Simulated assay, not measured.
Amino acid sequence: MSAKKSSSPRHSAVVLRESLSRLNRSLRSALPPIGATPSQLGVLGYLFRHGELTPTELAQQAGVRLQTLTRLLALIEAEGWATRHADVTDGRRQRLRLTTAGARLLTTYVHQREASLEASIAASLSTDEQRTLLEACALMDRLSARLQAAPASAEADPS
C-alpha cells in the first residue's frame, strides 16, 4: 500500500467506518442480552438525550421513516420503557417520554458497555496508547460535528 493511499481521506473514511463497525459488533457480542434490541436501545437513547419527542421528531432524529418507527415504538411502549401523552400545546399530537424503567434499562446497558470497554482498554493499551485513543476520540467528535453541520457534504459520490 502506498503512503499516499494510506493517508487519503477516502482510505481514512473506509478504515474508520470498518473499525467503528467492528468495535460495535464486538461490544454487542461481549455483553449479555439485556432484553432490548439495538434499535430499541437507540430509540431510548434519543429520548434520553433529547427529552420528549413526537414520533415524527423521533423519526427525523433517527433518520428513519415514521412507518418504520411505528412498530418499534409499539414494542417499546408495551415493555413500559416509554409512554405517550397528548402535547400540551396541540392535543392532536402525541409526545413520547422515557419512563423510569426505560432510563434504568438504558443506563444499565451503557454502564455495561463502558465497563467492557474499560476492561479491554486496561488490558490492551499502554498509557501512551490511551492518550492517543483520547486524541482520536476528539478527532471523531470533530468529524461528527462536521457531519451534523453539513450532512449534504457527507454524501458519497457514486462515481
Rank of each mutant, 00 (worst) to 15 (best):
T54I: 04
E79P: 00
Q61A: 15
G45W: 07
L31T: 06
S2N: 14
R146E: 11
A119R: 14
P9A: 15
K4N: 05
L73I: 15
P55C: 03
R84H: 10
T99M: 07
E114N: 11
T37N: 01
D90G: 01
K5E: 13
S120D: 13
A74G: 03
W81R: 01
R131Y: 10
G91R: 02
G35Y: 03
I76F: 01
M140R: 04
L53C: 06
L23C: 04
A3K: 07
A136Y: 10
R142F: 11
A74L: 15
A115M: 11
L31A: 12
A3Q: 08
G102I: 07
T100E: 15
R104I: 03
R104C: 08
V15Q: 09
Q40P: 02
P32C: 06
L20S: 02
S8V: 08
S153G: 05
L98F: 05
Q148V: 00
E18C: 07
L58V: 08
R93W: 04
I76P: 01
L69T: 05
V88T: 12
G51E: 03
E135W: 09
E57L: 08
T108Y: 09
Y109I: 00
D90F: 10
A74T: 11
E18Y: 02
P9W: 10
E57G: 08
A13F: 15
Q67G: 07
W81Q: 01
D87L: 06
T107A: 10
A119S: 14
L41W: 03
H111R: 12
Q67I: 04
E118K: 09
V64M: 10
S39W: 05
L105P: 01
L98D: 01
W81L: 03
L23T: 13
V14Q: 08
L139E: 10
H11M: 13
H11K: 09
R10H: 11
A101E: 15
L44H: 05
L66H: 11
A59C: 06
S144I: 03
S124R: 13
L44T: 03
S12Q: 12
L58P: 01
T68A: 12
E79A: 15
A145C: 04
L27A: 07
Q61T: 10
L27T: 11
L134H: 05
P9V: 09
S126F: 11
S2Q: 08
S39N: 09
V88R: 06
G42K: 00
E129M: 13
E77V: 09
R17Q: 12
G80W: 11
S120K: 09
I76R: 01
V88N: 02
A82P: 02
T132Q: 12
Q60C: 09
L27H: 00
R142M: 14
